[in-house]
Amino acid sequence: MPFLTIVYALLFYVATALLVVGLASKIRQYAKTPAPLKIPTTPAPVTRTGVVMRMFRELVFFESLFKSNKWIWIFGWMFHYGMFLVLARHLRYFTDPVWTWVDLIQPFGMYAAFAMSAGLLGLWARRILVDRVRYISALSDHLMLALLFAIAGTGLMMDYVTHTDIVAVKAFFRGLMVFSWQPLPQDPVLLIHLALVAILMIIFPISKLLHAPGVFFSPTRNQVDNPREKRHLSAWAAELEK
């Protein structure tokens, strides 16, 4: 077994464990922390169904962002939905036989990678060029964009410049899933791509990428506007009434 295969196999086990455990504990924390007061940003839906629709529009269309800034919206949407398609396309490395819908989106996945990269560059340009956004950016904000762009870039390189043995890559990942390790091709671009992905997985639960679970727990978006109809009382607030 080549040394690098062992390193990468271990790396992905560790990264997956950290991602899953880290995210689970954050989600648990958010779910367990009470929201003692009704604070939906109004006008807000007055029914649960309405809230589900509001969240749906936020997730799928980035509704608030659309109202707020068309440039961030267009770049952000290209990046996220590009990335979403690219990720979906990657399922072919984990499924056998490949699911039909994953097969069907393969051609779109290529455009998606370009959309994702263009979106990232647009966001990065704003971060550098707009004085307000530059002011609020820490080094980590730039590095996050660099990381994602590098992942997309190395991925695209393998599509267009230095092809790699994707059958072997698939065998490696399928092997990881059943604890039967297969050799990983030793192409530098692939190795960089995978290392960066592992880094992304590791930092996910300890960085601003927590916005992904966070958006579901935001009380200003997910609460029903019915404080007069239904009394809302958290456990610690109920203690005060004793």
Binding site: K26, Q29, Y30, T33, P34, A35, P36, I39, S64, L65, S68, N69, I72, G76, L123, R126, R127, V130, R132, V133, I136, S137, A138, D141, K208, L210, H211, G214, V215, F217, S218, P219, T220, W236
Partner: peptide, 24 residues
């Protein structure tokens, strides 16, 4: 307070510094 208010806990973690609010 971060243990008592979900708003605070979620908001402190979630900001991506997108800048959409900067001129609001």
């Amino acid at each position: 307070l971060t243990g008592k208010y979900r708003s605070l806990a979620v908001f402190l973690d979630s900001c991506v510094k997108c800048g959409a609010c900067t001129d609001k």
